[in-house]
Nucleic acid binder design. Structure first.
Length: 518
RNA sequence: GCCGCGUUCGUCUAGUUGGCCCAGGACGUAAGAUUUUCAUUCUUAAAAUCGCGGGUUCGAAUCCCGCACGCGGUACCA
């Protein structure tokens, strides 16, 4: 039975890189018929941010990434928050101590800092490892009685992992193959802190084992510490899970991994949900609040570092690839083998494209409801059936729900001003007279498409040798206030005879001869 | 510095056992068609000497070696 976990630490909002990691875990678990677990890794009490855990849960609910077990779901392997598991870790640390895999270290943080500075001055880097631990203040060099005395007197200490001196440690990674590092280059990581909490490394391994995790799918930033984890499993005599280290998500331009700063600077969210920082009061934008559909975010993220391979039925010489995929399809098509090894650069244009595609897939009823709500927000009472017709007609030009009102507003209210550039370009001398003639036509000809088309486009414009673009765009300007929008006659029919005539007359009055304005 | 990972169109990528690849798709870009306008839609185009340099081979994006560059790690943070 496959069991995977997503294990964030509640130090702030969830980054979309983290969302992608969780998504891949989820897709894999679902496809394999396994379980997906949410574990909160809050062993660093100093970095705890209130609200972060709740934010994480809410984000996944919005995205449609479901957990089978976890802080919010409960489950047979709980508790799922490491601070609630605190009492559990010490015995495992002791087990390591007994087996000679760990030792007490009394060095104070200040002493270690000083040591690092000292090395730095000589352009070297200090590392607490097999080459230096003999010179440090620990149970490897101190007499047993002295160690005992210091512990009993309450002197603070940490427990460090004791790496064997010169052995190659190989991590088998599902994405990268075998990665080998020599233990002499690895430092004796702290496993148990002086505050009585384990560090990530210890807690993570203990919990993964206890929770019977079979596959660890996590970010590439963990690859350098994977040998430590492998050694830890060996020290405990436990079977290690399979590892898969995901490529990083890179910023859209320049170098480095995607950060909060980039989002703010380049104008796109790096968080699924809007986040209000409780300490600084700073607000960071979220995909949800910007109007992105969760399906679009999921689809876009899934393809950043993974692809489904060739589409079934595509011909060999010119393969076609599928990009639009529902969560169900992603689950069916997902495979660790198709995860790429190199970092993926985040692309805002592609994200917007997905959003447009998914917005088009929304049902007409749903779009009508969105539009209806915005109409009401502007204090306008409109017939539901009319709103639905407008929504159906305008949907294809919309990417974000927030654009709905702006692109459809003239269906519900007459323009109060006329776009200056459009006036300058289209409202040529003599235009008021043409508009008056069109008002006449509107008033006398049967108010239906074919009749209006014949009377305006053919009899008046074409037969009169007039410029279609100039007249029709001026008419549009008069009716909607700018020169964008759907077919003019359809629009007129939607608005009704009186409303249209009223708008044209008002425009003539307000714009006048146009060219003489100001 | 040291260790590790990576390197195919501007971006995401296909390419899994070397020949069907003078490298395919998508986004973006450009042009055209459609429309009275904008958007949509459709068609077409430009766009990678497969990081560089050597090898192996009849034949390499695909195998080997070296180099360069980028990224990650190097905390009593995760």
């Amino acid at each position: 039975m496959v069991r995977v976990r997503f294990a964030p630490s509640p130090t702030g909002p969830l980054h979309i890189g983290g969302v992608r990691t969780a998504l891949y875990n989820y897709l894999f678990a679902r496809q394999q018929g396994g379980k997906m677990i949410l574990r909160i890794e809050d062993t660093d009490q100093t970095r705890f941010v209130p609200g972060a855990e709740q934010y994480i849960i809410e984000a996944f609910q919005w995205l449609g990434i479901e957990f089978d077990e976890g802080v919010h779901e409960g489950g047979p392997y709980g508790p799922y928050r490491q601070s609630d598991r605190k009492a559990l870790y010490r015995q495992y640390a002791d087990q390591l101590l007994e087996g000679g895999w760990a030792y007490y270290a009394f060095d104070r943080p200040e002493a270690l800092d000083a040591k690092r500075k000292e090395y730095e001055a000589e352009k070297k880097t200090f590392q607490y490892d097999c080459t230096t631990r003999q010179q440090m203040d620990n149970s490897l060099v101190l007499p047993a009685e002295e160690v005992q005395r210091r512990i009993e007197s309450g002197e603070p200490y940490v427990l460090r992992f004791k790496f064997p001196e010169n052995t190659d440690i190989t991590v088998h990674d599902l994405i990268r193959g075998d990665v080998t590092m020599n233990s002499r280059l690895l430092d004796d990581k702290v496993l148990f802190k002086s505050d009585g909490m384990p560090t990530y490394h210890l807690a993570n391994i203990v919990d993964d084992h206890l929770m019977e995790i079979t596959h660890v799918i996590r970010g590439e930033e963990w690859l350098p510490s994977a040998p430590l984890h492998v050694m830890l499993y060996e020290a405990f005599g436990w079977q290690a899970p399979q590892f898969a280290h995901l490529p990083l998500l890179l910023k859209p331009e320049g170098n480095g991994k995607l950060s909060k700063r980039d989002g703010d600077r380049l104008g796109f969210p790096v968080f699924p949900l809007e986040w209000h920082d409780p300490k600084s009061g700073e607000v960071s934008s979220g995909y949800r609040e910007q109007g992105y559909l969760p399906q679009a975010v999921v689809n876009m993220l899934a393809l950043l570092g993974w692809n489904p391979g060739k589409r079934e039925g595509g011909n060999g010489a010119n393969p076609v690839f599928q990009e639009m995929m529902t969560m169900e399809e992603l689950i069916r098509l997902f495979s660790i083998e198709h995860i790429s090894k190199n970092g993926a650069r985040f692309n805002l244009d592609k994200a917007r494209w997905f959003q447009h595609e998914y917005f088009q897939q929304l049902g007409d009823v749903q779009v009508a409801e969105m539009l209806g709500a915005q109409v009401r927000e502007h204090g306008i009472e409109a017939d539901a059936e009319y709103v639905a017709r407008v929504a159906g007609m305008m949907k294809e030009r919309i990417t974000f729900p927030s654009e709905l009102w702006d692109t459809c507003c003239y269906f519900f209210q007459a323009p109060t001003e006329y776009n200056e550039k459009d006036v300058a370009k289209r409202w040529q001398p003599g235009m008021p007279e043409h508009m008056r003639r069109i008002v006449e036509i509107l008033d006398t000809v049967p108010f239906e498409y074919d009749a209006l088309h014949k009377a305006i486009l053919e009899d008046y414009i074409k037969a009169g040798g007039l410029n279609t673009g100039a007249i029709m765009n001026s008419l549009r300007l008069a009716v909607v206030g700018r020169t964008v929008g759907p077919d003019m006659l359809t629009l007129i029919l939607m608005l009704g005879k009186e409303e249209t005539i009223g708008r044209v007359e008002r425009a003539v009055e307000k714009i006048g001869e146009g060219s003489e304005r100001e």
